[in-house]
Simulated scan of single mutants.
Amino acid sequence: MAIEEDPPAGIPEWVVTFGDMMSLLLTFFILLASMSEIKQNDKFQGVADSMHEQFGYDSSMSHVPGEMSPRNSSMAAMALTGRAKRAKVVQGGVKSKGTTGENQHVRIVRPGDRTTIGTVVYFSEDSATLSEDAEVDLLGAAETFAGKPQKIELRGHTSRGTPAADSVFKDNWELAYKRSLAVMHVLVDRMKIDPKRIRISVAGPFEPVHTGIDPEKLKQNPRVEVFLLEELADDLDGTPDDKKERYEFVPPATEATEASE
């Protein structure tokens, strides 16, 4: 009977591979646990955008009308910014063109639960006239709004100070409204966007971006924020009964029915 030899000293080779796999799994679950609760939205968004850019994440489903995730989920703002920081294709970007995509004029205006894809149009102090540069930026951003069914909100803002004594505007509310109206005319007259998609709101001096004393930063307060909302324009046109009556199919009259009449 042959004597069985003792196994060689040391651990089997498969243990090394198993250990590597367990280390990777542990790292993966630590990453999931650390990202399960978002405490710093800006930093999380930076990590998410970087991962989306490297792995080719496509968020095209985020603009499909209807009750469909992720558009109506609590992660809607992040789902809409997957391609917000892509560079141009010649610089290694991805060729898919999204709402933000390679168009640098379109941006996330402010984080929040609502859809905040849009842009910002800046105005000179005590003025409701768009500059040439601001109009070019608005036209570039409006290309992504045209042809969509969602409502567009134009929210007018002013600085905290009151208009000058010789101003043509009686107060900040009128100035903010005139700024929103100027943006609306560009969207409707130049981009041929349906006026029923436009909603004008006015915040006046009460939602400043900057509240300090830096004059350069304070120049960002006189502005109009342009939001692409989740609401569909047709859904707000009448009551449910009105819409049912408007879209109800009425079969054409036949010869028999005409003869009976």
Rank of each mutant, 00 (worst) to 15 (best):
Ala9Met: 02
Pro12His: 12
Glu13Gly: 11
Glu13Lys: 14
Trp14Ala: 10
Val15Asn: 11
Phe18Asp: 14
Phe18His: 11
Gly19Cys: 12
Gly19Trp: 05
Asp20Tyr: 12
Met21Val: 11
Ser23Glu: 15
Ser23Asn: 11
Leu24Thr: 10
Leu24Arg: 09
Thr27Gln: 11
Ile30Met: 08
Met35His: 06
Lys39Phe: 10
Gln40Ser: 10
Gln45Gly: 03
Gln45Val: 02
Val47Leu: 15
Ala48Met: 13
Ala48Ser: 13
His52Lys: 11
His52Ala: 15
Glu53Tyr: 13
Asp58Met: 04
Ser59Ala: 09
Ser62Leu: 00
Val64Trp: 07
Val64Gly: 05
Pro65Cys: 09
Pro65Ile: 06
Met68Ser: 07
Asn72Gly: 14
Leu80Tyr: 06
Gly82Pro: 00
Gly82Cys: 09
Val90Ser: 05
Val90Pro: 00
Gln91Cys: 05
Val94Cys: 05
Val94Tyr: 12
Lys95Tyr: 05
Lys95Gly: 14
Lys97Pro: 04
Thr100Val: 10
Thr100Ile: 14
Gly101Asn: 09
Glu102Arg: 09
Gln104Gly: 02
Ile108Trp: 08
Gly112Asp: 03
Arg114Cys: 05
Ile117Cys: 14
Gly118His: 01
Val121Glu: 01
Val121Ile: 15
Glu125Phe: 00
Asp126Cys: 08
Leu130Pro: 04
Ser131Trp: 13
Ala134Cys: 04
Glu135Tyr: 03
Leu139Phe: 02
Phe145Cys: 04
Pro149Asn: 09
Gln150Phe: 15
Arg155His: 02
Ser159Glu: 14
Arg160Asn: 03
Arg160Cys: 01
Gly161Leu: 08
Ala165Gly: 12
Ser167Trp: 09
Val168Asn: 11
Lys170Glu: 14
Lys170Ala: 10
Lys170Asn: 08
Asp171Pro: 00
Asp171His: 02
Asn172Glu: 12
Glu174Phe: 05
Glu174Cys: 07
Leu175Ala: 02
Ala176Glu: 01
Tyr177Trp: 01
Tyr177Glu: 09
Val186Phe: 06
Val188Ala: 01
Arg190Tyr: 05
Met191Gln: 06
Asp194Phe: 03
Lys196Val: 10
Ile200Glu: 07
Val202Lys: 09
Phe206Leu: 06
His210Met: 08
Gly212Ile: 14
Asp214Met: 13
Pro215Ser: 09
Asn221Thr: 07
Pro222Gly: 11
Phe227Thr: 00
Leu228Pro: 05
Leu229Trp: 03
Glu231Trp: 07
Leu232Ala: 04
Gly238Ala: 05
Thr239His: 02
Asp241Pro: 01
Arg246Thr: 01
Pro251His: 07
Glu255Asn: 08
Thr257Trp: 08
